[in-house]
Nucleic acid binder design. Structure first.
Lengths: 334, 334
DNA sequence: GTCCCCAGGGAGAGCGCTCTCCCGTACCAT
DNA sequence: ATGGTACGGGAGAGCGCTCTCCCTGGGGAC
């Protein structure tokens, strides 16, 4: 037994056929005699043959990998991967891809260098396409993908219109659900903590909440982290001590808000009702558990992967947005 | 402008040199005249050339990707990627790899098919090596990697001895820190919630705790999820109502335990002191925040990547275990 | 019997790169 | 002048696969 890995040639020799025939058997194309198929499979078994992926890619121009890119300026790795929201996206993507024998390549695009690296990687055929999850509105990676004609699908509508597929949630409708819940619970003095207002989703959630709760409802801006939720809630409370209902634009911030309310001596939901957004794991583990607006993130991740694969299959495919519907999940906090 | 991507040949023609010279400029090897370098770079710029990764891989036998595998029987995607612990590992790995122009390929190995796929992928040269994070003790993937001579590094010591590098924590020492903290706080009636006892780390933590707290300290077994922490704490409380100090083997379960104690009317830390393990994000966002044993997971992830790259560089390299030291982080719960 | 067709299989041309040879030239010491 | 020795650069052989083209032979239609 030599050290070099067996090649098609070796298998062909053992089976007494040509390289082409072995290739046909492996890829299951054209009509190959059943008897010969058996012989070839036995030869593959015997030699321990494994097709060389690089060689195959070279001719098929497919790698079987797609880039899963977390994009946006300055998002440190620990913050991104620590976010349960991102975990859910990954989960949906992986679940879908595995059924198609493809795998995601994790890339962080938090600096200009890193973004250039992502584009280069795709142009070099390091992946067949990209799934982009932007953390900031001014991210230019989607536009660069479009310009370079690289197959890509976004999570969330791009800030400026772009011929590219994306999945998104009807954030505005979701926020309206939250507002209605608070009003139904008899809350009169409402407030809200929004996400960063540069992000369309944040603006939509704020707008939706105000659609129902009134345009002058006070808001404090956070950035979707636990800490920013605490800070924003503290500011809100300082300015409006009579608050009895708050909508916080994601669960992580809502968990932070919960702590601030508790320390301020306000009981939830008795004194202040709280509604979050996302229905991510912190919502379930909080005390009280959060009433929240569910976003089917896993499904959205899977759909994103589906759209990308379709686009890779047919490059002429027209860009499609897919919008998901939110749902209210009632738990203890409101 | 044609549709086909420019190749080395094209660049060479434009620059008026040979393919080999362009290759040298790109890879920065051997001495190429500065003037010619400039010309070549200009030609690259002009043609918009991007080297084809598959072609390069075919001859270098390197892909620039490594597999990041979450292994073990039946770990649904959402459970794995939702776990903040795994997010920290990923974060450390990504952070280290990016400095080396490598990227992790995310793979889930929760079924026999998926495990076979991982091995096949590696044997086909789809990745240069593997980082294995096992969720179960009886995972056979490490052994299969060793058998196939595939470069691999584990997170956590393998259940049975294997010639393979791994990173781990001194769990026993960590659990001793927890026990000492509880004793120092004057707690007399201790109990503990362990992880699944099939996992070496869980056994070590239990053993370490009992080293200090006494061999007969009651334990209830969980499986590291929030829910299992609730259930285990409830059992513990039912059997030992006089408990005043509890060590829970990870923060996620500790957060669950906290909720159970709260509902049982026990104040933390006044009535019952609680110490967690990991120092993951839930520890900070709990109310009260958890006193816990810190595991430098990001560093461990980075070290794992470092070991793997070293092994890939030098296949003859001897397997090395790297053990990290835990540290007590004091917060509100004990 | 002749013709045609088609299934089954081989030959061989690439895919785009790296890297080993090899050759020419300039520069040093002898 | 002569040998030695770098260094700069070209030629060309693969890396291992897919896929088109072509050849062969057997069977059906006429």
């Amino acid at each position: 037994m030599t050290d070099a890995a067996p090649t098609l040639e070796d298998v062909a020799r053992v089976a007494g056929v040509s390289r082409a025939t072995v290739s046909r058997v492996i890829n299951g194309i054209r009509n190959v005699d059943t008897e010969i198929q058996k012989i070839v499979r036995a030869a593959i078994e015997q030699t321990g043959y494994a097709p060389n992926r690089a060689a195959r890619s070279l001719v098929t121009r497919r790698t079987g990998a797609i880039a899963l890119v977390v994009s946006g300026a300055g998002s440190p790795a620990d913050q991104v991967f620590g976010d349960p929201f991102f975990g859910r996206v990954v989960s949906g993507v992986v679940d879908f891809l595995r059924g198609h024998r493809m795998h995601p390549l994790l890339m962080l695009a938090d600096t200009e260098d890193a973004r250039a690296d992502v584009i280069a990687h795709l142009r070099q055929g390091g992946a067949d396409g990209a799934l982009l999850v932007s953390t900031h509105a001014d991210d230019d990676l989607p536009a660069r993908c479009v310009r370079a004609r690289l197959p890509a699908v976004l999570f969330a509508r791009p800030a400026s219109s772009l011929p590219i597929s994306y999945v998104d949630l009807d954030h505005r409708a979701g926020a309206r659900l939250a507002a209605r819940r608070l009003l139904e619970q008899g809350r009169k003095n409402l407030g809200t903590v929004s996400g960063p207002l540069g992000v369309p989703a944040s603006r939509d959630r704020l707008a939706g909440f105000r659609d129902v709760a009134g345009a002058r409802v006070p808001n404090e801006e956070g950035n979707f982290t636990h800490e920013s939720g605490e800070a924003a809630m503290a500011r809100l409370l300082a300015a409006h001590s009579d608050l009895d209902g708050v909508f916080v634009a994601n669960d992580l911030m809502a968990a932070g808000a919960l702590g601030v309310l508790h320390r301020a001596g306000a009981r939830v939901p008795e004194d202040v009702a709280l509604v979050g957004f996302d229905d991510s794991s912190p919502a379930r583990s909080c005390r009280p558990a959060l009433t929240t607006v569910r976003q089917p993130v896993e499904q959205m991740g899977a759909e994103m992967a589906r759209l990308l694969l379709a686009r890779i299959e047919d490059p002429a495919r027209a860009p499609t947005p897919v919008i998901f519907e939110p749902a209210l999940v009632v738990r203890g906090s409101a």
